[in-house]
Simulated assay, not measured.
Amino acid sequence: MIPTRILLLTLMLAAPHAVSAQAPGRDACNVEVDITDRDPHGANVRAAPGGSIVTALKNPAGDGWIVVHLTAQQGDWFEIDRAVLIDLDQDKEQGKESVIFQGRGFVHRGVVGAGGLQNGAVIYRDHATSSAKLDGHASGDQAVELLGCFGDFAKVRVKAGIGWTRQLCTNMVTTCS
């Protein structure tokens, strides 16, 4: 009987450690957003939330913008796996894209966002298309504050309130329609 008690005690003690080995509050996502940081030195990409700086994402020409791919959120930090510089050519409507970061890194929520919404975007109350709509036909040119991400959805604050959408506009030159 003693070995059973020891086994049960071992399992009870090991269970909380197994759960804590996973990142608490980490939500996987698949969302593209803009770097909105205006710092001329660029937006810092870190090795871990609040950790050492790996690189700074900056637009050397000043024309264009940077789009990052969010793969997860942990508190106020977003995990990214790539950043793309959209460099505008003055004679063309669309810019040239070049990857400026690839790998695993973290950016703070304060340096990312969206230029707006796609015109007619649907804002849901939860991160599922089956949830109630907060706004069934949102204006594309309104202010959008990025709050989080989950799956293919971005959590945003817009005129109608706080909700979830898959229709961010990551074009810093024109509205998305």
Score class of each variant (00 low, 15 high):
Gly42Ala: 13
Asn44Gln: 13
Val45Phe: 00
Val45Pro: 07
Ala48Ser: 12
Gly51Lys: 01
Ser52Met: 13
Ile53Val: 15
Val54Phe: 01
Thr55Ser: 13
Ala56Pro: 05
Leu57Tyr: 13
Ala61His: 01
Gly62Asn: 13
Gly64Met: 06
Gly64Tyr: 05
Thr71Gln: 14
Ala72Gln: 04
Gln73Asp: 04
Gln73Trp: 01
Gly75Gln: 12
Asp76Tyr: 03
Trp77His: 03
Glu79Ser: 06
Glu79Tyr: 08
Leu85Phe: 04
Leu85Tyr: 03
Gln90Leu: 10
Asp91Cys: 00
Asp91His: 02
Lys92Asn: 12
Gln94Leu: 11
Lys96Phe: 15
Glu97Thr: 13
Ile100Met: 14
Phe101His: 08
Gln102His: 15
Gln102Lys: 14
Val107His: 06
Arg109Met: 07
Arg109Ile: 06
Gly113Val: 10
Leu117Thr: 02
Leu117Ala: 08
Gln118Lys: 09
Gln118Met: 12
Asn119Leu: 06
Ala121Glu: 00
Val122Thr: 06
Val122Ile: 08
Val122Met: 01
Val122Arg: 07
Ile123Glu: 05
Ile123Pro: 07
Tyr124Gln: 10
Tyr124Asp: 05
Arg125His: 09
Arg125Trp: 11
Asp126Leu: 07
Asp126Cys: 00
Asp126Gly: 09
His127Arg: 01
His127Ser: 04
Ser131Pro: 10
Ala132Lys: 02
Gly136Asn: 12
Gly136Ala: 14
Ala138Val: 00
Gly140Phe: 05
Gly140His: 00
Gln142Asp: 12
Ala143Tyr: 00
Val144Thr: 09
Val144Glu: 09
Glu145Gln: 11
Leu146Pro: 13
Leu147Gly: 07
Gly148Ile: 10
Gly151Pro: 05
Asp152Ile: 02
Asp152Gln: 05
Phe153Asn: 02
Ala154Arg: 06
Lys155Pro: 03
Arg157Thr: 08
Val158Ser: 12
Val158Gln: 09
Val158Lys: 05
Val158Trp: 12
Ala160Lys: 08
Ile162Arg: 04
Gly163Phe: 08
Gly163Ser: 03
Thr165Glu: 09
